[in-house]
Design a protein around this nucleic acid. Structure first.
Length: 428
RNA sequence: GGAGGAAUACCCAAGUCUGGCUGAAGGGAAUGGUCUUGAAAACCAUCAGGCGGGUUAAACCGCGCGGGGGUUCGAAUCCCUCUUCCUCCUCCA
């Protein structure tokens, strides 16, 4: 959520900034009207409430003295009714106002390039050499199927499309990647390891910004107010919801491994084959809680942590600074890391690293105090994938494939793979 | 799933039956001070924080006794509902 006072003071400027985003601004035009109505009603009801408090005190006094207070009581009955009516009006206005505010996207940071399409994203770095193959490369779904380590067909049978079984060394590879990434982040990058619930409530999804606007993107459990998490960002960021943190714990980083679930509404027909777009996938997510003045340095740091995973795995990638229209709803600034996918001859997103500034913490009410007695301030939050594991498997299989259809295991993963160096096609 | 019990400020805890100087007793912790060579102990003092309205800033006002509704002139106190925790039974990885 945005700072109401800031909008009040800079309405035109903020409206202009938001207009560069690829987002519907809803009823933002009504901001000034609703804001004014709201404040008027608050002022009016509070005058009456002050009177009620005062006169109730007098009534109490009279009652204690066994005096008659019928006149006051009659008068207060009227005041009470008026308050009730105004409170109802106020509630309506506040609901409207709040809903409007909750549907407004974050304001892009000044360093974010203005743009209308993904072509306006700026490549800021490129790492690794694109592998040259002297044979025809296979797509990861063919590699995985032929190696008997990935099974889409049976997953379609047991569940449906966009689900997958990993088996044998495929399952082992997924687990190895998870351990490798988690170890790297906790041992080298200073994150505290976390294993969160994969089901959250409505407040949590509202806190991180998925709700109220994007309810169709998440899976909801029937007859409950529970949702499957689309990313571990949701439970981990909400870990500190409604808390005032001690400034000594900042910056604080959590790395969380979890399954993520996405309905992929609106993506029908896209990436229908393979591991790129699944309803369920595993991901290591990095979440950081930092002081406002540090958050842009922290974004570089966080992105570096994700990049480190790709580098150690020897996967070629590029780093994009996302333009205003490609920021997503919640980010003020975002980098995407895209990994090379040989069979597609292109880079595909494997990590997204964002600075939300105080956008999420205003919603989730997460603050900190600089010192005892100081006014609480909103913390800044950041997060990034470090990395999406399914897409990492896809990239590994394709980039490390050999002419005979086998796949070499990157050295850093071998300790996690029982020393194995190659995934071979089954002999039988 | 069944039957009970509980939720009060940083912590513990009175008040709830019998609604009204309780904007919340009393402890503890914390902070400041006296004393002491220093510390401890003792003693004194301070100790809702927060949110919202308002203001140049204040003053001032409103809301807060788990959350949300309701009854009432008035609710920590009565009613409804939700959440969480505890005990017992049942079930279970």
């Amino acid at each position: 959520m945005l700072d109401i006072k800031r909008i009040r003071d800079n309405y035109t400027e903020i409206k202009e900034k938001l207009s560069h985003r690829n987002e519907d601004l809803g009823t933002f035009d009504q901001f000034e009207t609703l804001d004014q109505q709201r404040r008027d009603l608050i002022a009016k009801t509070e005058v009456l409430k002050a009177e009620r408090n005062q006169v109730s005190e007098q009534i109490a006094q009279k009652k204690r003295n066994k005096e008659n207070a019928d006149a006051e009581i009659a008068h207060m009955r009227k005041v009470g009714d008026d308050i009730k009516v105004m409170d109802t009006d106020l509630r309506d206005v506040e609901d409207k106002f709040r809903d409007m505010m909750m549907r407004l996207p974050n304001i892009p940071h000044e360093s974010v390039p203005v743009g209308d399409t993904e072509d306006d994203n700026v490549e800021v770095a490129k790492w690794g050499d694109i592998p040259a193959f002297d044979f025809e490369v296979k797509a990861h779904w063919d590699l995985g199927t032929d190696l008997n380590i990935i099974d889409f067909e049976r997953a379609a049978k047991t569940t449906g499309s966009r689900f997958v079984f990993y088996r044998g060394l495929g399952a082992r590879l997924e687990r190895a990647l998870m351990s490798f990434m988690m170890d790297l982040h906790s041992e080298e990058h200073g994150y505290e390891e976390m294993l969160p619930p994969v089901i959250v409530n409505r407040d949590s999804l509202t806190g991180t910004g998925q709700l109220p606007k994007f309810e169709e993107d998440v899976f909801k459990l029937a007859d409950t107010d529970y949702f499957l998490i689309p990313t571990a960002e949701v439970p981990v960021t909400n870990f500190f919801r409604d808390e005032i943190l001690d400034d000594e714990i900042l910056p604080k980083g959590f790395s969380a491994y979890s399954a993520s679930f996405r309905s992929e509404a609106g993506s029908a027909g896209r990436d229908t084959r393979g591991l790129i777009r699944q309803h369920q996938f595993n991901k290591v997510e990095l979440v950081r809680f930092v002081k406002p003045e540090d958050s842009y340095d922290e974004l570089e740091k966080l992105t570096g942590h994700a990049e480190k995973v790709l580098q150690l795995l020897g996967l070629p990638y590029r780093k994009l600074k996302m333009c205003t229209s490609d920021l997503g709803f919640t980010a003020a600034k975002k980098y995407d890391l895209e990994v090379w996918i040989p069979a597609q001859g292109t880079y595909r997103e494997i990590s997204s690293c964002s600075n939300f500034e105080d956008f999420q913490t205003r919603r989730a009410n997460i603050r900190f105090r600089r010192e005892a007695g100081a006014k609480p301030e909103y913390v800044h939050t950041l997060n990034g994938s470090g990395l999406a594991i399914g897409r990492t498997v896809a990239a590994l299989l394709e980039n490390y494939q050999q002419a005979d259809g086998s796949v070499v295991i990157p050295e850093v993963l071998r300790p996690y793979m029982g020393g194995k160096e190659v995934i071979q096609a089954p002999t039988k």
